[in-house]
């Protein structure tokens, strides 16, 4: 399985994301914002950081890159899975590939801590812990997205509506989450629960 790790100017979690994917058996490659065709990849990973300084709004400027254009056609062709972590989630929302938007935390501060979550995927619920690190991570939406939510905060750190920490699109081919699974992957001090998220992606890919 081949995964692309997207690096925009200002992305800064690509190294850990790539290492986590490789530990999970993916063949990986960095791609930059000018990439026009993603068809060779089974999975596209938008990793965390501050793309283009997160100026205007988090993820806004990244939206206007050839890479995001090529994501639209990637989705249209139903080629593979797209996953966005933190800034990647913000970009997917800004690009309207996922519903809703991410706005400034209720506490008006950057929050970096390990936080308890409920993972709810395909009917199995599980308590996990993952680190969060963001200033604009409060999820907001109108209407009902509950059937698409797979990750909820147990101690809401940012004011997200309905404690939403992560969700996928209606075809389960695009997923976004604010917590950083790649930071709970290699080190016993921060736990290994991040592997649960990578497992879901792998299982989804196997499902085809």
């Amino acid at each position: 399985m081949k995964a692309a790790v997207v690096v925009f100017l200002g992305t800064n979690c690509q190294v850990e994301t790539k290492a986590a994917l490789e530990a999970y058996g993916f063949e990986t490659k960095y791609v930059d914002s000018n990439t026009k065709n993603l068809d060779e990849f089974d999975c596209i990973f938008l990793s965390g950081g501050f793309s283009y300084g997160d100026y205007l709004r988090s993820g806004r400027i990244a939206k206007f890159t050839p890479l995001v254009e090529s994501l639209y056609s990637y989705v249209e062709k139903q080629r593979g899975v797209i996953a966005g972590i933190c800034n990647g989630f913000q970009i997917l929302c800004e690009a309207h590939l996922l519903p809703g938007a991410l706005i400034e935390n209720d506490c008006l501060k950057f929050v970096c801590k390990n936080t308890p979550l409920e993972l709810d995927f395909n009917g199995t619920k599980k308590k996990i812990n993952l680190p969060v690190a963001h200033r604009e991570g409060k999820y907001f939406y109108r209407g009902d997205v509950s059937e698409f939510v797979f990750l909820r905060y147990l101690k809401n750190p940012n004011g997200s509506k309905d404690n939403i920490a992560g969700l996928y699109d209606n075809k389960k081919r695009i997923m976004g989450l604010m917590p950083h699974p790649e930071r709970a992957f290699f080190n016993e001090n921060f736990g290994f629960d991040g592997r649960e998220i990578f497992k879901i992606i792998k299982d989804e890919l196997k499902r085809g």
Partner: peptide, 9 residues
Amino acid sequence: EILSNKVVE
């Protein structure tokens, strides 16, 4: 398209 996101702004 550029300065605002109609979902929230």
